[in-house]
Design a binder for these strands. Structure first.
Length: 679
DNA sequence: AACAATGGCGCG
DNA sequence: ACCGCGCCATTGTT
């Protein structure tokens, strides 16, 4: 086993294998204010813990002190989690001196102050750094209270900073219960509580987190809790700044902080959904699904299907098409030789005349569309503005892409006529247009830049179609004679092979996706020709493979050790984002080589989109909103009169920022002004 | 009842 | 041994 032994988190059985090198022990306490210990003991007068800033004058004084300091910790307590339907109640501000101000925003409001306006202005000041944990939350409430776009600047999010430093890190943990997999991989916790413990040795109680923040008067205990939270932010900021610096990740953290306001805007604005059309399409699809279900079950019954008796469920003699076991048992009993009921296998059966398999596929698609998408969206629609507010997470993925949830905006159907019809439900409101921009073929451009492949770079510089070029090189035909089908085939070749796909997979995919029968020999030949045409891509792969044997120092920090380093295999994006590869299973299996090929590319795409989002956000007029982002695509909602201008703006920024990052590879984009997401 | 694993499928 | 996600229902386990 040539793998490199990475560290494990402290206490596992394998810990002795780990070399511990403590570079520099730094007492976190030195950065904490003197009375931190007393604060935690709860035995000192409240005025030593926090200062109330509930009068307009006291509030003003607090803001003045912050201006003088040039930095503050910022935290809000709110009546709920949704910035559209809940309200901010308490604002906590901390200073480098350790002083904490706690302000009851409602009380201040009654006395004629406008603290949320003040906070809005604070968020925009480039000369005052705002430090918070998951600032998306707090800033969403502040932004939601304003009637203009806040051009927030000089932000430092301790959660994002920490996530940047730990990206990709997996620790092995024993499962707490007896499960099949004894070892479980776990990503480190990134809550404020976890960070305070890890880096400062402070344990924060979360007892009051969900207490009644809408009460007539807030209790001293609630305020103490709130004050303790905000007090750890600046000490954490110090440590994370240094950690970012040691790992040369300041730039990536800055990229995340700059993208943050646009994420807030996307979540707050949400997507416009045509509710009526959505409901009727849902009903139509539900009916369709119901008809198909009965047909499937009736035919199965007629053909002699007998349900197994299952533990824990009510017995039904009917086949459940959502049960892959039921389906597999039935189809095998019918004499079909299959081992999976996935789409590829069922398509094959349907093609060979099994209409039941075709119906099942249709049923799965229709019921998924009706239940998982259309119905879910209607249930998720905000009663405040009747729009769909998915959440975005900047760093929940290993390579640095966004993830999205509740609902996942990144998996809205688009393929095929049915998918398109679903996207058309996202309609711009009257007088508005959607402006959509896609980075064109960005993965291959990134690969051209990563590998510095001469042929690829020249092709892009000449504005050539790389899929056609690949098709031409494989077939030996001149580019002008390449058919659409050949181009599609070459597209599969390009995407599969740059990430390490083997000829066997190529053969399989050609069949599945295009119905092209490719012999293994032909697939091998295409594989050979591809790397012959783009030799630097092969060299890039080779270079990535060697990374496994070239671990580098990566710095971490905790309260006990201070800053310390570990030998870690890391991969990097063009912007310098790092991903740490921890071993996954017993035996120290590292990343698969294909992951090492893919990660810098995928991560660079994320870097680029985030850079573009920051840039676009800072250039948008107030009436135009950023409403969506899907890996290589951005969506704006704009008044009709501004739509064309916004299209040019997007195109210009995407080309400029992209071409700068990928230089000498040019970046291009496709922009459209639309009435709906589906065109 | 709650949790874990799996298969399946939507997107890039 | 092609990468990255989130979400659902089923099925088995505690």
């Amino acid at each position: 086993m040539s793998g490199v032994i990475l560290w494990l988190p402290g206490e596992t059985a394998l810990a002795p294998l780990v070399e511990k090198s403590i570079l520099k022990k730094r007492s976190s306490q030195a950065i904490l204010s003197q009375d931190q210990g007393e604060v935690l003991s709860n035995s000192v007068p409240l005025s030593h813990v926090y200062i109330e800033a509930d009068t307009p004058q006291a509030w003003k004084d607090a803001l003045q002190e912050i201006r003088a300091a040039g930095i503050c910790g910022l935290d809000l307590e709110t009546t709920g989690l949704d910035p559209l339907s809940s309200r901010a109640r308490l604002c906590q501000l901390s200073l480098p001196s350790g002083r904490v101000y706690v302000a009851d925003l409602w009380e201040l409001g009654r006395e004629g102050a406008s603290p949320l306006q003040d906070l809005g202005q604070l968020s925009e000041r480039s000369d005052i750094k705002k430090v918070g944990h998951n600032l998306k939350f707090d800033l969403s409430f502040i932004q939601a209270s304003q009637n203009r776009r806040l051009k927030m600047s000089n932000l430092f999010d301790t959660m994002l900073a920490s996530q940047v430093c730990w990206a990709g890190y997996d620790s092995l943990q024993r499962a707490d219960k007896a499960t099949k997999n004894f070892w479980k991989t776990k990503t480190p916790e990134q809550s404020l509580k976890a960070l305070a413990e890890r880096h400062l040795g402070i344990s924060l109680s979360k007892e009051f987190q969900a207490s009644n923040w809408g009460a007539d008067t807030l209790s001293p205990e609630q305020k103490v809790y709130a004050a303790k939270d905000v007090k750890v932010l600046l000490p954490l900021h110090e440590i994370l700044m240094e950690l970012l610096q040691k790992n040369k990740l300041e730039h990536i953290a800055e990229l995340e902080f700059t993208a943050l306001p646009s994420v807030i805007e996307m979540e707050l604005t949400g997507l416009p959904l045509d509710t009526q059309a959505c409901r009727s399409l849902m009903e139509q699809k539900k009916t369709q699904a119901q008809v198909l279900l009965q047909k499937l079950q009736a035919e199965a019954q007629k053909a002699g299907f007998e349900a197994r008796r299952k533990k824990g469920t009510k017995y039904s003699p009917l086949l459940n098409p959502a049960s892959s076991q039921d389906v597999l048992v039935f189809l095998q009993a019918q004499g079909y030789d299959i081992s999976s009921t996935g789409e590829a296998a069922l398509k094959e059966l349907a093609f060979n005349g099994c209409s039941w398999a075709g119906d099942l596929l249709q049923y799965r698609k229709t019921s998924k569309q009706a239940n998982d998408f259309l119905e879910k969206w209607l249930l998720k629609l905000s009663p405040i503005d009747n729009r769909l507010h998915g959440q975005y997470f900047q760093l929940s993925t290993r390579a640095g892409r966004f993830s999205s949830r509740e609902p996942n905006i990144q998996q809205v159907p688009k393929r095929g006529e049915e998918g398109l019809a679903i996207r058309r439900l996202f309609r711009a409101p009257p007088g508005k247009k959607l402006v959509k921009a896609d980075l064109s073929g960005i993965e291959l451009r990134i690969m051209a830049r990563l590998s510095q492949d001469k042929t690829m770079i020249e092709a892009f510089q000449a504005g050539q179609d790389l899929h056609k070029l690949t098709a031409s090189k494989i077939s030996g035909l001149p580019i002008e004679q390449i058919t659409k089908a050949q181009r599609q085939g070459a597209k599969a070749v390009n995407f599969l092979l740059i990430y390490g796909g083997q000829p066997e997979l190529l053969q399989k995919r050609a069949k599945e996706t295009y119905g092209v029968d490719m012999s293994l020999e032909e697939a091998k030949e295409a594989h050979r020709k591809f790397f012959q045409t783009y030799p630097e891509v092969a060299a890039f792969h080779e270079k990535q493979r060697t990374l496994k044997r070239l671990p580098k120092n990566h710095y971490l920090h905790n309260y006990e050790k201070g800053f310390y380093s570990r030998q870690a295999v890391t991969t990097q994006t063009i912007s310098g984002r790092k991903r740490i590869w921890g071993q996954r299973e017993y035996g120290y299996t590292l990343a698969s080589i294909n992951q090492l090929y893919n990660s810098p590319s995928q991560g660079t795409g994320a870097d680029l989109l985030k850079a573009i989002m920051g840039e676009v956000y800072s250039s948008l007029p107030d009436e135009v909103k950023m409403i969506g982002s899907v890996h290589d695509e951005l969506i704006l909602e704009a008044p009709e009169a501004l739509a064309q201008d916004m299209a040019s703006l997007l195109l210009g920024i995407m080309r400029r920022v992209g071409s700068e990052l990928l230089s000498p590879v040019p970046v291009d984009a496709e922009v459209e002004v639309l009435d709906s997401w589906g065109g």
